[in-house]
Design a protein around this nucleic acid. Structure first.
Lengths: 199, 199
DNA sequence: GCGATACTCCTGACACTGTTCGGAAAACTG
DNA sequence: CAGTTTTCCGAACAGTGTCAGGAGTATCGC
């Protein structure tokens, strides 16, 4: 009798929790990371949100780093998808502008995601080969768009990424939520294409 | 008797520890941060290095954030000193090149310091007014050098910082310890000054 | 339908973290 | 020498990621 009443509610909670699948956990993790910063992710707090015990998360993820790894993959997949959706103009300037705008916007949208994907800010975290492969894919896709546009040498490409990532990081650091550096994209693209293509 | 032998070594250690002053603690903190990343700093490990109990650190610092705050101030002071030591050439291109080189080198030297000063990577950390004042001083100094060179508008200045910080962050992220992006400084400065000054 | 197997989840525990409190020893001040 | 201030530590609290072991549930082969 006493046993039964003690076990009953546990079973109920089981059912409630059971729907908290991998995807839901990751979504909750995204929310936490966005609200409090990449390094403020806590497995225990995460478990609380998805109504689990912290140890149960280990059914879905090998470790905290594994959670980060999945977020890393998520972010890169999203970026890759946007690149795929992008229709590249024949006009050089227009194409460059679109790519820059795509990237800077992507960065400005979500500071945490930017940190996770492009800055090594979590101690000892390194993406798994599978996740890193997606990042490489993103890189290749970006690179191929730019070579199509006429950006041939690695030097020019590096200079391009420097400019675009510079705008992104400055936007996030000095004017998060605003458009102080986003407004400069036009100007920056003009500067860049004048330099490498002449005017 | 038993009491005395138990107390004796404690007194000896006291003397040994006593030389671990604020400066020494901060130096040790710099080393830890450089070796393991900004977010891997641990007060307990730090105390171990300077041969103290963790609680004793609170004699010198109000909190872990306060340690970060002092590091933040340290870094900005160093950068400010370098700006002061810099002799600005009359030649525009040369001057810009020197400033860019100064900054990118400073960034490339020490990833942890760069994160600490220019990226908001530590959860909830915000520099104290006193430390932030030094950062503002650095900003002013950089800005004044550039206006002297003929960079008048805020837009141009923002574009400049974007390019320079872009080179820095790319250097750290994609080729730490190397010079893949440092080599581009010449090129980048040419691009920038052609754009804002004409050629 | 039944037994074995796999999956999911939890209890308990360990070593670690930053931090607070209260007290003791040492250093400095009059 | 007495009194005050500075420096340090022992004990403890709430938080962290993680592991081991054991339940309950779902699924598969028979």
């Amino acid at each position: 009798m006493a046993d039964k009443t003690a076990v009953e509610p546990r079973r109920d909670r089981r059912h409630a929790r059971h729907q908290a699948t991998k995807r839901e956990i990751l979504d909750a993790a995204w929310k936490m990371v966005r609200d409090a910063g990449v390094n403020a992710l806590s497995l225990r707090a995460l478990a609380r949100v998805v109504d689990m015990e912290p140890q149960s998360l280990y059914t879905y993820f090998d470790s905290k780093h594994s959670v980060y790894d999945h977020l890393f993959a998520d972010g890169n997949r999203e970026l890759l998808a946007r690149f795929d959706r992008l229709e590249v103009s024949d006009d050089r300037r227009r194409a460059l502008d679109a790519v820059a705008r795509l990237f800077v916007t992507f960065a400005a949208e979500d500071q945490a995601r930017y940190e996770l994907l492009f800055l090594r800010t979590i101690p000892d975290f390194e993406p798994s080969p599978e996740s890193y492969a997606i990042a490489v894919e993103v890189f290749k896709r970006g690179r191929s768009i730019l070579t199509d546009v006429g950006l041939r040498t690695l030097e020019d490409f590096d200079l391009w990424t420097a400019v675009v990532s510079g705008l992104s990081s400055q936007q996030l650091a000095n004017d998060p939520g605003g458009d102080r550096y986003i407004r400069l994209i036009d100007n920056a693209v003009a500067m860049f294409s004048e330099h490498v293509f002449g005017r």
